[in-house]
C-alpha cells in the first residue's frame, strides 16, 4: 500500500506536469461546477437570506435556525435522490430537461451546500459586537447600510461559509454521480472519475485524481484566505 501511495503521488505529479488534457478538462469542470453552485448558493441565497433571518424577529425563528443546522448533516446521496426525483423527466421539473446535464449537478450542489452556508452566515453575524448595529443606526445609517456594516464586520466568518460551501461542493460525489451520470466530456467530475477509476481497478490513477482534488481545494482556499488577510500568497513565506 505504501508503494501505491508513492506511485499515485508520482502519477499525480506526472498528470499535472504534462497537463494531461482529459485530467485538465475534468479538473476544470469540477472547479466550474463547484464555483457556480457556491456562487449561487452564497450570493443569491445564503448571504441575503441569512442577513434577513439574523436581523429580523419572527415567530419560529429558532426552529428555522435549528432546522438549517440539522440540514448540515444532509447526506449528498439523499440530495442526489431528491434532485433526481425533481428533475427526472417524469418529475415536477422534468420539462427543464436538466437531468444528466451539468445544470442538474449545479442544482443539486446548491441544494446541498445552502444550509451550511446559511448556518455559518447566521452564526458569523451572531458573533459580532451587538453595539455595532445599534451604533450604526444611532448615527443615522439606513437599514440596508447597517446590514452592510455588520456583514463587513463579520467578514471573516462569512468568508468561512463560502470556503466551507465550496469545499463541500467540490468534494461531493453523491449528487454528481446520481444526477450527472458521470458522462465523459460532459458531466464527469474529479470525484465521479475517482469512483469510476476505483471500480475499474485503476487505484493509482484514482488516488492521483484525489491528490489533484486536494491540491485544487488548497489553492482555492489559500487564495480566498490571502484576500481575507489582505496579504498576497508570497507574504506567507516571510
Amino acid at each position: 500500500m505504501e508503494n501505491s501511495f508513492w506511485d499515485a503521488f508520482v502519477e499525480a505529479l506526472r498528470l499535472i506536469r504534462t497537463l494531461d488534457p482529459e485530467v485538465m478538462e475534468i479538473t476544470w469542470r469540477s472547479l466550474q461546477l463547484a464555483a457556480s453552485s457556491s456562487t449561487i448558493a452564497f450570493f443569491l441565497i445564503a448571504l441575503p437570506l441569512g442577513t434577513l433571518i439574523h436581523f429580523n424577529r419572527f415567530p419560529g425563528k429558532r426552529l428555522v435556525i435549528s432546522t438549517i443546522q440539522t440540514l448540515f448533516a444532509m447526506p449528498a446521496v439523499a440530495v442526489g435522490l431528491i434532485t433526481y426525483t425533481l428533475l427526472s423527466r417524469s418529475g415536477p421539473f422534468g420539462d427543464l430537461e436538466w437531468y444528466l446535464t451539468p445544470a442538474a449537478i449545479v442544482f443539486g450542489q446548491t441544494l446541498l451546500i445552502t444550509p451550511v452556508m446559511l448556518g455559518l452566515v447566521i452564526s458569523a453575524l451572531n458573533a459580532i459586537d451587538k453595539a455595532i448595529p445599534e451604533t450604526a443606526t444611532a448615527l443615522g445609517a439606513s437599514r440596508f447600510q447597517t446590514y452592510i456594516i455588520c456583514i463587513r464586520e463579520a467578514k471573516f466568518g462569512i468568508l468561512t461559509a463560502l470556503v466551507m460551501g465550496f469545499g463541500r461542493a467540490v468534494s461531493e460525489v453523491g449528487v454528481s454521480m446520481m444526477v450527472g451520470g458521470n458522462i465523459r466530456e460532459f458531466t464527469r467530475t474529479l470525484t465521479t472519475a475517482i469512483a469510476l477509476e476505483t471500480s475499474k481497478g485503476e487505484r493509482e490513477l484514482a488516488l492521483a485524481l484525489g491528490i489533484i482534488l486536494i491540491l485544487l481545494a488548497f489553492v482555492i482556499n489559500f487564495a480566498l484566505l490571502s484576500l481575507q488577510y489582505r496579504k498576497l500568497p508570497w507574504h506567507y513565506w516571510k
Binding site: 457556480s36 456562487t39 449561487i40 452564497f42 484576500l227
Partner: peptide, 19 residues
C-alpha cells in the same frame, strides 16, 4: 470585499457561461 465578490462572480459567471 469587492475583490472577493468580484472574483467569485467572475468565476461563477464564467463557468455558467461555459456550461
Amino acid at each position: 470585499n469587492l475583490l472577493i465578490i468580484g472574483v467569485m462572480l467572475l468565476l461563477g459567471s464564467a463557468s455558467i457561461a461555459c456550461d
